[in-house]
Write a protein that binds this DNA or RNA. Structure first.
Length: 195
DNA sequence: TAAGTGATCTCT
DNA sequence: GAGATCACTTAA
């Protein structure tokens, strides 16, 4: 496995963290006897109080408090009464920013059947796959808390993965400027080796 | 394409 | 306290 990403990894500009999380692993031990590991393939940045798409755009509230807290903690909230959204807080304390995890590729698990190797697409499904709920809200992404990040063992540090930057999903309410920002980052599938 | 779902926030 | 909204998913 790769090395565990320290808190300092997240104490950087949000879009930078969002890009560098692509290809990294998120590991969950929240489901007893069923470790789940995803290679992160899609992230989204929510950057600062000016970002009209961010929950923090209207200041501190009980819900968004973790966004104002230390980097490397989880911000987990429920949307549409059903789906947990998993974010990791970035940047310096008191600066509200976070990266939403939107998609991933299962790396391992007890059920290694075909279904388990299908991509997990969508933030609600990602949370469900990892077993992350509101219990993780505000907790640090550390092994002792059951969920953490690791660098990807297969990606050499010197190779830049191919990344597409797009508009964020489902944030039209943010207005033309902020909804158009290309804060969504997707890792292109590895190029198939030619025969 | 539309319904489901309930916490959260903004305004009375 | 009421009403609208919502960083979504699923079944058609």
């Amino acid at each position: 496995m790769g090395t565990i990403l320290p808190r300092s990894f997240f104490d950087r500009p949000t879009t930078e963290v969002a890009r560098e999380l692509l290809g990294a692993l998120i590991v969950s031990d929240l489901l007893p006897g069923d470790r789940r590991v995803l290679m992160i393939t899609e992230t989204e940045a929510y950057d600062g109080p000016q970002d009209r798409a961010s929950h923090a755009s209207r200041g501190l509230t009980p819900r968004n408090r973790p966004m104002f807290g230390p980097p490397g903690a989880f911000y987990v909230y429920l949307v549409y009464g059903m789906h947990w959204m998993v974010n990791v807080v970035t940047g310096p304390e008191h600066y509200p920013a976070a990266v939403l995890l939107r998609a991933g590729m299962p790396e391992q698990g007890p059920s290694r059947d075909a279904a388990a190797t299908d991509a997990i697409k969508g933030p609600g499904l990602l949370a469900r796959y990892l077993g992350v709920t509101g219990r993780m809200n505000g907790l640090a992404a550390q092994r002792k808390n059951g969920v953490w990040f690791e660098s990807h063992p297969l990606l050499p540090g010197r190779e830049t993965p191919r990344i597409v930057a797009s508009k964020r999903i489902g944030v039209e309410y943010a207005g033309p400027v902020w909804s158009a920002r290309r804060y969504n980052f997707t890792l292109l599938p590895a190029r198939r080796r030619d025969a």
